[in-house]
Design a protein around this nucleic acid. Structure first.
Lengths: 190, 190
DNA sequence: GTCTATACGATGATAGAC
DNA sequence: GTCTATCATCGTATAGAC
């Protein structure tokens, strides 16, 4: 069942490599070296370099969408849902470190029709996030504010985590989360 | 005086191209086409592709450092200085759109010793920003919080601007700034 | 599935005539 | 300073033996 160990290792190293150097700067030659194979042997496990990028991007997307679905289906009030979403982003950024960069930056190198599909998913995610923010405002739980500005400020502000967190193991995810919420969430809370 | 018109145009188009496609994906062939020259002619104006990246990165760095210096020398209280710094970032992001991406993302492709120098400058900037945040906390103007978390949240959260702003000319810089401050600054204000 | 060998294109950059 | 022509290098990917 599942994928072979070799295949698994290739995907993991590819994600790490793409994160470290960026998709374009990451060469198949270096990937092969890290995995301990010849370049040509890699191609027994997948069809092209971009296929690796596709897997990483859409796997990440699925993680965010599943988290969103859970939040939407919860019975919490809107402001609590926003809290949960911020928490979701922090959790993904601290557990699946590699995927975050790629998900936020390297998707640009997807070719059609994958690029279009990816952007569609992202747009959908943003809309659903915005909807929850708007519900929070309507319910009087969040300040009157430009939802788009708030959305992007929140989403983008969490993007430094993946680079910073691994270095500072001293701080726990829990306290990190509460610090971020203090800066970010308290800023939009009435 | 100053640089020749051709040279100027090359720098501008290079900045735009690097922003649109990323440094690695931007080819000298496309740059030449946009400028209206043959590739080889470009090299009469500069020595290498990376030289263009260096100029963009360090020009951007200078803009931030000058802004920081002005803020530091002002007699405003710490929390007002933080306001001014956020305003500085918004102003740079909305006026010098191209430089922001490159300054935030593409510096990775600098080679030594420029990479080291750039990172040194950035570190210096972050330290000075942190110092002001700490002064705000000590003065009781800002909440008790983890300064590093606050710093990166602020810095990173402004990074969506350069991509979003050009599309939405409907909103003025002034009102954009006040919306961002509402989300961000009010979040750290006691 | 892994290897050696190689195809083939795109890239940054240079030489030398005008 | 701009051109035409060309180079060397490195990229992804494939062919075919084992």
């Amino acid at each position: 069942m599942a994928v072979s160990p070799t295949k698994q290792k290739i995907f993991e190293e590819a994600a790490r490599l793409f994160q470290e150097k960026g998709y374009l700067a990451a060469s198949m030659r270096e990937l092969a070296q890290r995995v301990g194979l010849q370049v040509s042997s890699l191609y027994s496990h997948f069809g092209s370099k971009e296929e690796l990028l596709q897997k990483i991007c859409f796997d990440s997307a699925r993680a965010y969408l599943e988290g969103m679905k859970n939040v939407e289906e919860s019975s919490a009030k809107p402001s609590e849902k926003v809290r949960q979403l911020i928490s979701l982003h922090i959790r993904i950024a601290t557990t699946d470190v590699t995927s975050v960069t790629i998900f936020s930056d390297e998707w640009r190198h997807l070719s059609e029709p994958y690029l279009r599909e990816f952007l569609g998913i992202r747009k959908d995610y943003e809309k659903r996030f915005s909807k929850i923010l708007q519900q929070g405002i309507d319910a009087g739980e969040l300040k009157e504010m430009n939802v788009t500005v708030a959305l992007f400020t929140i989403l983008t502000s969490l993007r430094w985590l993946h680079r910073w967190y691994p270095e500072k193991r001293g701080i726990s995810v829990k306290s990190l989360e509460s610090e971020i919420l203090r800066v970010l969430f308290d800023g939009i809370k009435k």
